[in-house]
């Protein structure tokens, strides 16, 4: 109580605006803001963007064959980015339960389903914004390196280079968010997201032999974000069902029923 001094009780100002129902738009605004207004959230975003800047600078200073080709430099960087960026969404799903702020959230908005929908949308939105900002940073870095060194930058195939990772990132984010919602605990959720689908694919490969591709969600995402998303559609749907739809169903049911303490 060092800085708190008790003021005399004064009659507070009444709120003149009429009572309007809690809106989905306000939930969306609040959920988006919650992801970037804490120190932890900001550090995560800063770390991701710092990673992008470092690898861009590294490539720009020392390109493999002397010329700056965006379609050569961007894909591996984006692949790594897409793997890590869903952590933003996972944090958005678990933090309310680990910090117990769900108590405030669900007393202000007792209907939980719209709140969860707002969490999904805002988490996906922020993740996509980070991916877009990263691509912009990489492009700017590549252009700068090409201009400074005088070799120029080759941006051919920009659309294809960018589109795949964006779709892949979107799908991965939805999967990660659903796993996080189902588990409800940040550290465990992140561990499960990074380890389980991969470990499961390996296990399936040795145990189920030919049936393994039916469980391989990352390969399914690659197909979906590639040039022909309709290849092997049954396998794609099965693995997406197991790794995205199932955790989402478990997570949403759990969040709706879970007693807030």
């Amino acid at each position: 109580m060092s800085t708190a001094t008790a003021p005399a009780v004064r009659t507070p100002q009444p709120v003149r605006s009429p009572i309007r129902p809690v809106s989905f738009l306000s939930m969306l605004r609040v959920e988006t803001r919650k992801q970037i207004d804490t120190r932890g959230g900001r550090s995560l975003l800063a770390m991701i963007l710092a990673f992008v800047v470092i690898i861009t600078a590294w490539y720009g200073i020392d390109p493999p064959d002397g010329t700056i080709r965006f379609n050569q430099f961007a894909p591996p960087a984006l692949q790594i980015l897409v793997m890590f960026v869903p952590v933003i969404a996972m944090l958005a799903m678990t933090v309310e339960w680990t910090q117990r702020t769900a108590l405030t959230t669900f007393t202000l908005a007792p209907r939980r389903l719209p709140v969860i929908a707002a969490k999904y949308l805002s988490a996906i939105g922020l993740t996509m914004a980070v991916v877009a900002a990263s691509i912009a940073l990489m492009a700017a870095g590549a252009w700068l390196a090409g201009t400074v060194s005088g070799v120029g930058t080759d941006f051919s195939g920009l659309g294809t280079v960018v589109l795949g990772p964006v779709i892949n990132g979107l799908l991965t984010t939805i999967m990660a968010a659903s796993i996080a919602l189902a588990i409800g605990q940040t550290a465990i959720a992140i561990a499960v997201y990074f380890v389980l689908p991969t470990a499961f694919s390996f296990l399936a490969f040795s145990l189920l032999k030919g049936a393994a591709p039916w469980f391989d969600v990352f390969t399914a995402f690659e197909r979906l974000s590639g040039s022909d998303p309709w290849t092997d559609l049954p396998k794609t749907l099965t693995s997406v069902g197991i790794w995205v739809v199932l955790p989402a169903a478990i997570g949403i049911t759990r969040a709706l029923r879970r007693e807030v303490k």
């Binding site: 009572i19 809690v22 919650k34 702020t101 405030t104 007393t107």
Partner: peptide, 18 residues
């Protein structure tokens, strides 16, 4: 309640803040 916070102020645990 369409906007419960405008009718009732609730504090169930002061420690439950980020």
């Amino acid at each position: 309640l369409p906007n419960p916070g405008r009718v009732v102020g609730v504090m169930l645990d002061a420690a439950a803040q980020h």
